[in-house]
């Protein structure tokens, strides 16, 4: 399916955006592994939607504005992105760290979004101070983190087969992920007090075997959002769109019908 990628200038910084398909808007916010605009799942989603997939600054070799220190800057940056992309009545889908970003955006102002889908999202703390709700991906070997992400570890990409250039890209995305998630780690302690503002129908879609953020975490997260549905996808880990692409798309289509 034809995709169109461009870099748009914003009042502060710039943003690379890939568009694909026609139909209602689906704003796709990627996770810590970088843009998934090339992933086959987007072709399937594009059968029903216009997929609008921005790349968060710093991922995939894109520039980071100098003033960025973490997620708060990214959230405010996206207010400009929403304006520039004329996002209106869009399905908002965020995956992992992108799910955190989606929850932040929807809880600031939900009027631009028809529905919200959070996929294996981070962003809140559900346990006590000494509960490790979210695996510290910077405190374990990268290959182990990759394996925890998959229901079937054989589906995990093998870092040892990557070219130097591809590995540098992985390292670059890891730096960007660190920028947005280092402290407080992968969450905003103030976000739960704002989640009631998500007024659009919301689905939390979770890989049943997610080794980074468990389904218990997902359920507790869903309970913080009024009326949110919680649905798991069997035989899938942290990236259900990759391990169970068809099932994932079916769930998205069913929720957005």
């Amino acid at each position: 399916m034809g995709a169109n990628t461009e870099t748009i200038e914003l009042p502060v910084g710039e943003c690379t955006v890939t568009r694909k398909g026609t139909g209602p808007q689906l704003l796709l916010l990627h996770g810590g592994g970088g843009s998934i605009a090339d992933h086959p799942v987007t072709d399937k989603l594009a059968e029903k939607f216009e997929i609008i997939a921005p790349t968060h600054p710093g991922f995939n070799g894109t520039k980071v504005p100098d003033h960025f220190d973490g997620m708060p800057e990214l959230v405010l940056f996206y207010l400009d992105v929403l304006d520039a992309l004329k996002i209106d009545n869009a399905v908002l889908m965020g995956i992992s760290m992108g799910g955190w970003l989606a929850a932040e955006l929807a809880s600031i102002n939900c009027t631009r979004f028809s529905k919200v889908i959070l996929v294996d999202a981070v962003g809140v703390k559900v346990g006590g101070p000494t509960d490790r709700d979210i695996v510290d991906v910077f405190g374990i070997p990268p290959e182990k983190a990759t394996k925890l992400m998959y229901h079937d570890p054989a589906n995990a990409p093998d870092l040892s087969t990557l070219t130097d250039e591809a590995l540098a890209a992985v390292a670059g995305n890891r730096i960007a992920l660190g920028l947005y998630t280092w402290e407080p780690y992968m969450h905003n302690p103030k976000l739960p007090q704002r989640l009631h503002r998500i007024t659009a129908p919301t689905l939390l879609l979770w890989g049943e075997s997610d080794g980074l953020v468990s389904t218990d975490y997902g359920e507790a997260y869903a309970a913080m959002i009024p009326g949110a549905k919680f649905v798991t996808i069997p035989e899938a880990g942290h990236s259900p769109y990759a391990e169970q692409t068809d099932r994932f798309v079916d769930e998205v289509f069913a929720f957005t019908d």
């Binding site: 990268p142 540098a168 920028l179």
Partner: peptide, 21 residues
């Protein structure tokens, strides 16, 4: 282990990749 030597943002991507390697 490499991951303690390689916190995100300490090294530029090319060096970070070498340590991952």
């Amino acid at each position: 282990p490499g991951y303690w030597s390689n916190p995100p943002g300490y090294h530029p991507p090319q060096i970070a990749a070498q340590i991952m390697k």
